Simulated assay, not measured.
Amino acid sequence: MAHHDADSWQRFVLLETLDLAVPMHMVELQRCSPEALCGIASEAATFVGSHGDALQFGGKKCAPAFNQLARGLAAAALIAWGGVTFQGLHWCTVPGCTGPDTDHPQPVNPQPVPADIARALNARPITDLHLPDPDSSSTEAA
C-alpha cells in the first residue's frame, strides 16, 4: 500500500511542476518560428523517449528529462491547433482555455509543414495505447 502512496505523490509532484514549468517555457518560446517549435518538440520527444524512465525512477537524467518534457509540451502547445493535453493538464495559446474541446481559433500564422517533417510524421504512425488503471489491476493477497 505504501508503494501506491509513493506513486500518487510522485504523479502529483510531476503534474504540479509541469503546470508551472510549461507556461514558463511557452513564454520563452513564443517568438520561435513554427519550424523551430517543431524541431524543439521533436528533440524533446526523442530525449524523453530515451530517458523518460528517469522521471519515474530518478537518476542523473531526471532533471533534464523533466525539462525536456516541459519544453516539448510547451512547443507543441504553441503550434498544435487546440493545444496539448497531458495527464489532464491542458496548455494552448487561448488565455483561460478550459480544455481541448474549447473553441480554438486557427493559429495566427498557419504555415505548411516542411516536406521533410511531413515525411517523418507520416513515416511513423501514431497509436494511442491505453494503459490499465493501477488501482483496478492491483490484487492483494487475503
Rank of each mutant, 00 (worst) to 15 (best):
S138K: 06
R11S: 09
G82K: 04
A65R: 05
P125I: 04
R31S: 15
I79A: 03
H104M: 04
T46L: 00
H4I: 11
L37A: 06
F57Q: 13
I40D: 02
L121V: 01
P64I: 14
H104R: 04
W91T: 09
I40P: 02
G52D: 11
C32A: 15
G72E: 09
S8Y: 07
L37N: 03
Q56G: 01
W91C: 13
T93E: 10
G99V: 14
A41D: 08
G88Q: 00
F57P: 12
G52H: 07
P125S: 05
L55A: 07
F12A: 06
R31Y: 12
L69P: 04
G96F: 06
W81P: 07
G49Y: 10
T98S: 15
T93A: 12
V48N: 06
Q106P: 02
A80H: 08
A65D: 02
I117N: 03
T127N: 15
G83V: 03
A142M: 07
N122E: 10
A118S: 08
F12G: 04
A65F: 01
N109I: 00
H3L: 05
F12Y: 11
T17C: 05
D5A: 14
H51R: 10
S138T: 03
F66E: 02
A77C: 06
A80K: 00
S33M: 09
D116C: 13
R71V: 12
M1E: 15
F12D: 06
W9P: 02
A123V: 02
D5F: 04
Q111P: 07
P112G: 01
N109R: 03
D7I: 01
H51S: 15
G88V: 02
Q106I: 01
D101P: 02
Q56D: 00
W91N: 09
A44Y: 05
V48T: 07
